[in-house]
Amino acid sequence: MRKRPFATLALIVGMGQAQADDALAPFEVVGDAIARPLTGAAGDAGRGERLLLDRRRSLCLLCHSGPVAEPHAQGTLAPGLGGVGSRLSQGQIRLRIVDMKRLDPATIMPSNHRIDGLERVAAPYRGQPVLTAGEIEDIVALLVTLKE
């Protein structure tokens, strides 16, 4: 696997895998967070909300509940998203969306920005992450605003 040079940070404990593929943005994990946006810029909370509501694209509400429309169709398999902006920092939210398995290998949460280590991926999704870097930033931008 080709490695890209990163600015050296004393606290780096892990790096994004498989950056050889253009589908993935490079990122730096520091502690239990990814402090810097994958796209280099902040996302858009409005786009994030539309994405959250589109369950076929973001999938979030299949497992999480959130302070959005259609509460009856939301999942109970994961912590509610209400108040996540108070519980976690922006960087902590970002890492959990990008690759929760780094924190809990047994989690059922998909590693949304990772393409290695998967088996029998259906052809249309092969080599593609669940969420693009831009989509992740839009969702992060929304979630940090959910303070209660």
Partner: peptide, 20 residues
């Protein structure tokens, strides 16, 4: 799959809970 889930993850460990 892309979502990296087994049958057991839902039907053994999480039955009775809601998916969507």
């Amino acid at each position: 799959g892309q979502l990296d889930l087994s049958c057991a993850a839902c039907h053994d460990a999480r039955w009775g809970q809601q998916l969507g």
